[in-house]
Simulated assay, not measured.
Amino acid sequence: MKILDLTHYISEDMPVYPGTEGPKFSPANSYEVDGFRETLVTLYTHTGTHMDPPAHLFPNRTTLDQFPISQFVGRALVIHCSDLREGQSITMDYILPYKDKALQAEFLLFHTGWSQYWGTEQYFGEYPCIDHEVADFLINSRKKGIGLDTIGLDPIVDINLTLHKKLFRDSEIVVIENLMNLHLLGDELFTFCALPLKHKDADGSPIRAIALLDE
């Protein structure tokens, strides 16, 4: 079995969504004083490679801790669409050639190639986004989740978060943002694990996302 890491490092100088404070790492205990090292970490629940549940936008909807653990593991397929230019949409034309596999997959991960801009201003630019037909496909095929190598599901200028709301209003789905290394995955199904922190009333959480490939 081959295991690939799909997760960005968390650091104080990492990209964060506009208007959000970056994480802070403060020494809490030291070898010299306490005999051990411990660090106080302060960060938002939607920092780095992270997961959104329906409760991120809608009160009384599902929080991450209310999902069964099975929600976060399943068969996945990468949809490669890195040929798209800035501002273009990910349409069903990218899914239809792999429709049988896409229907079998519990997660669809979209490789736009945007992770190459991680740490630059361009990462916050006009990255490709799914269109409403793709959103409908995710809803109707009852996917566990969608993953992207961009900072958001919606365009950066859409403060209404239209696509988030469409997916979360009635569906038990999670949205995973800021993935990396999707270019290393082919066009076959694989096992995907995206495990959030286990805390109460979770509106989101950083995750460790990995791909498990059969060799």
Rank of each mutant, 00 (worst) to 15 (best):
V157W: 06
G87R: 15
F137C: 02
Y44S: 09
A194M: 03
D100T: 06
K200E: 08
A209G: 06
L77Y: 02
I10Q: 13
L138Q: 00
D34H: 11
L163T: 05
L4I: 09
A135F: 00
L161Q: 05
G119A: 09
T162S: 09
L189A: 03
P27F: 14
S30L: 15
L96R: 13
E21P: 02
F137I: 06
H183Q: 15
L77R: 01
F36S: 07
N181K: 11
I95C: 05
K99C: 14
L84F: 06
D52L: 12
S115P: 02
V16N: 11
G186F: 05
G147M: 01
I95E: 00
H80Y: 09
T39R: 13
P18E: 09
I69R: 13
T47F: 06
F137E: 00
F190V: 04
P155V: 03
R75V: 01
L109I: 14
R37D: 11
G48M: 06
T150Q: 10
V41Q: 15
D13M: 14
C81V: 10
Y9V: 03
P97A: 15
G74N: 04
D65R: 10
L103I: 10
P59C: 13
D203R: 08
C81D: 02
D203Q: 05
L4S: 02
F58M: 13
A211Q: 01
I146A: 15
D65C: 12
I139W: 00
R37V: 08
I151Q: 03
A55T: 02
N181H: 09
N29T: 10
H8V: 04
E106T: 02
H199L: 10
L57R: 11
A55N: 08
W114K: 03
E126S: 10
E32V: 04
D170M: 08
N160R: 13
E188F: 11
D214L: 14
K24E: 13
H8P: 03
N60I: 05
V175R: 01
V174S: 01
N140Y: 11
P155H: 10
K144S: 00
L103D: 08
L189T: 04
T162I: 04
S141W: 12
N60P: 00
I173T: 00
G22F: 09
E38D: 06
C193R: 15
H8F: 13
D201S: 15
E215S: 14
G125T: 09
T47L: 07
L6H: 09
T150K: 05
F36N: 11
Q88N: 12
T162E: 12
V33I: 09
K99T: 04
A202C: 08
E133I: 08
M1E: 09
P59I: 08
P196S: 11
A55R: 08
A102F: 02
G22V: 11
L109N: 05
V157T: 11
T20E: 14
A194Y: 01
L77I: 04
L96H: 07
L6Y: 11
N181C: 04
T112Y: 10
T150I: 07
I95W: 02
F67V: 09
L197G: 09
Y44R: 04
T42S: 12
G145A: 07
Q104Y: 02
A28K: 13
G22D: 08
I173P: 00
L213N: 03
E188Y: 11
G35Y: 12
Q104H: 07
L167G: 00
S89T: 08
